[in-house]
Computed example of a mutant assay.
Amino acid sequence: MRLRNKPWAKDFMGEHPDILIHEDEKTVKDWKEIFGNENPIHVEVGTGKGQFVIGMAKANPDINYIGIEHFDNVIVSALEKAIETDKPSNLRLLRGNGANLEELFETGELDRIYLNFSDPWPKSRHAKRRLTHESFLARYEHVLRKQGEIHFKTDNRKLFEYSLVSISAYGMILQDVSLDLHAEMPEDNIMTEYEEKFSAKGQPIYRLEAMYNN
């Protein structure tokens, strides 16, 4: 997907350090100090325009949420949306690379990681780039508490099948698997922008929850 250039994005992001943190400014900070409490921390890797992570923060005020996004031209949209919703105090946006989680969080600091509609990287030679590849699962395990969780959603059947195999082979415990999430929509389901788009076209949404067996 080609991203539309927003030359004003960097300056706008710099005007809101209370909610948006840049990876260049952070190597393992005390997130409990940043949030001002010791509530559980949930992270969305690849937060896109922020609809999911902002919705989760508003629905669950006793949980701290961090949305990570690599591209200025995308995360600035999440920032705008957060401002429109009065910047929930339990929300932070992090402009950074989800591959660098071990540089951003302490060991065992997180309670849950969300992977929503990640790039499927369909070619076999690109399998290591998939966010459910074993190398990424190892990174998540490092920053998650014992028996921490991954929640994964996608519209891509092949990526979902790959993820089921990869996660099972890693030794994680599958807790909840849905081949059509919207057939019986959970009351607490917060949709991403992509989820709304694909479900409107009648495409099934695949979802799983998995827990580390440590």
Rank of each mutant, 00 (worst) to 15 (best):
D119K: 13
D86Y: 08
R4Q: 05
I150Y: 00
E149M: 01
G108A: 05
L91E: 00
Y162C: 05
E193Q: 07
P40A: 12
V45L: 15
A200V: 02
A138F: 01
H126N: 10
F12I: 12
L181V: 08
E44L: 09
G50R: 13
D30I: 06
E103M: 14
D119I: 10
E149H: 09
P120W: 00
D188A: 13
Y194V: 04
L164T: 11
I66K: 14
M1I: 09
W8Y: 14
G55I: 03
M185G: 00
I113G: 03
K201P: 00
W8S: 10
T107K: 14
P61A: 08
A57V: 02
F198P: 01
G48H: 11
I113K: 02
V76N: 06
R92P: 03
Y162E: 07
G98Q: 07
L164W: 04
K123L: 12
G48V: 08
M56N: 11
D62A: 10
G98I: 02
N60Y: 13
M172E: 07
P61K: 14
N97V: 02
S135E: 01
F152N: 09
E33Q: 12
E184R: 12
I68E: 05
V143F: 06
Y162I: 02
M172F: 04
F105L: 06
L101K: 01
I75E: 04
K49Q: 08
L174Y: 15
K197T: 07
K32V: 11
H42C: 12
H16K: 12
E23W: 04
